[in-house]
Design a protein around this nucleic acid. Structure first.
Lengths: 191, 191
DNA sequence: TTGAATATTTAACGGCCGTTGATTAATATT
DNA sequence: AATATTAATCAACGGCCGTTAAATATTCAA
C-alpha cells in the first residue's frame, strides 16, 4: 500500500529554504540570539510563513535533531540485525564517524544551551537498548586518563538526573552505595 | 583586613524579594514561560528594578545554580581535608542528601531545559577532581540493572560531548577503542 | 487550459523584552 | 535632624514575538 501523497512543491521549497537558512545561522551564531526575522529574511520568505511550518525556533532545531537521531539509530540497526545495542557496543566507530562527518552541526549543538534536547533523545535510546546487554566476564585494558574522568563524571550526573526525574525512588544511602560500587568497578577509589 | 562594606538595605530587600519570587515561579511553571513581568509583579518591584540587579532570567537562574554548586563543593571539602575528590568518592551520600533536601529546586532544574547550566558546572568540578583519584585494584559488587544502564549511557554521551568540545582531538577509531574498553570494564558486551 | 485548492504575502494586533532619562523615595552619615 | 547619596519608580522607546484576517500568487488536476 503506497501511501505517497505528493507534497505541494511550494511547501518543499519553503521548508528547504528555511531549514538551510536556519542551519547556516546555527553554525554562525548563538542559538539564543537567532531570531525568526533573520531566518525568514535569509530564506527569502515572509516571517509569518515560518510560523506556518514550525512553532518556533526550538521546534526547528527539534526537527534537525530528530533527523540526526534517526540516522544514528539506523546506523546501529544496519550493522547487526537482531539487536540494536549489539552493533553499538561491539563497534562504536561508525557512530563517531557520523558525529565527525557532521561536525559543524554538533559543535554548535554542544557549545549551545540546547544540547539537552539532543542529549535527552540519544540518552533515552541508548539506555533502553543497553539494558538488554549487560553482565559478562572482563579483562581490563588501559583507558586514557582525562577521558576516563569525563566518562565517570558524566555517568555520575546521569545517575543524579535519573534519580531526580524518577522522584527519588531510592534512599540516598542506596544511591550512594550504587555509585560507590560503580566507582569501584571502574577503579576509582578514595585516597 | 575586614573588607565589610555594608550593602544598602534596599538592595538586600529587593534582591531577596526577587529571588523568592523567582524560585516560587521556577517550582510552579516552565522556566521558558516565566516572564520578568511576573517576577517583578510577585516581588512587588518595578520591572526595571529587576534589570538593575540581574541581566535577565537566565542570569537569575545562574545565581541560584552558583550557590548550589558552591554548597556541593564545600560539602565535599569539609569531610576530607587534603583532597576534594576523596570525600566525594569515598561516600557520596551527603551529596545525595543535599539534592534530596532541595528536591523542589532540582526537580524543576532537571525537568527543565536549563539543566545543562547546572550539569556543566558540576561536571567540570567533578572531572577535575576525579582526575586525581584513578587506578586501583577492584572487586565487583552487583549494580542495579536500570541504574547501570543509565550510568553507562550518560557516560557515553559525556565522552561524545568532551570529544566534540575539544575539537575532536582524537581519531574516531581511537575514540571507538576507548569506549569499547570502558564498556568492557563495566561488563557491557556485544551479543 | 481553466478552475479549484491552498500556500504565501501583507498588514496589523497586543504582549514582553531590554534600555533610557527624569523623578521620587529611602538610606547612611554627620 | 539635615544633607548627600543612591536605590527604586515611572514612562516611554524600538524591537521581536506569535497570531490573525484578507488579499494575492502558485500549484494541482480535470
Amino acid at each position: 500500500m503506497e501511501n505517497a501523497i505528493k507534497t505541494d512543491r511550494r511547501i518543499l521549497r519553503t521548508k528547504q529554504s528555511i531549514r538551510k537558512s536556519f542551519l547556516e545561522l546555527f553554525a554562525e551564531k548563538e542559538f539564543e540570539h537567532i531570531t525568526i526575522n533573520e531566518i525568514a529574511e535569509r530564506a527569502n520568505v515572509n516571517r509569518g510563513t515560518v510560523y506556518l511550518h514550525y512553532n518556533d525556533k526550538y521546534d526547528l532545531l527539534d526537527t534537525c535533531i530528530e533527523e540526526h537521531i534517526n540516522e544514528l539509530i539506523s546506523l546501529c540497526k544496519n550493522r547487526e540485525n537482531d539487536s540494536v545495542s549489539q552493533g553499538m557496543v561491539h563497534d562504536p566507530k561508525p557512530i563517531f564517524d557520523y558525529f565527525h562527518a557532521h561536525f559543524p552541526f554538533f559543535a554548535a549543538m554542544f557549545s549551545n544551551q540546547r544540547a539537552f534536547l539532543f542529549r535527552d533523545r540519544l540518552l533515552n535510546f541508548m539506555s533502553t537498548n543497553l539494558l538488554l546487554k549487560m553482565e559478562r566476564p572482563a579483562n581490563m585494558p588501559v583507558i586514557e586518563h582525562e577521558l576516563k574522568a569525563q566518562f565517570m563524571a558524566s555517568a555520575f550526573i546521569g545517575i543524579v538526573e535519573w534519580w531526580i526525574r524518577h522522584q527519588t525512588p531510592h534512599t540516598t544511602q542506596f544511591m550512594a552505595d550504587q555509585v560507590r560500587n560503580l566507582f569501584e568497578q571502574n577503579r576509582v577509589y578514595p585516597a
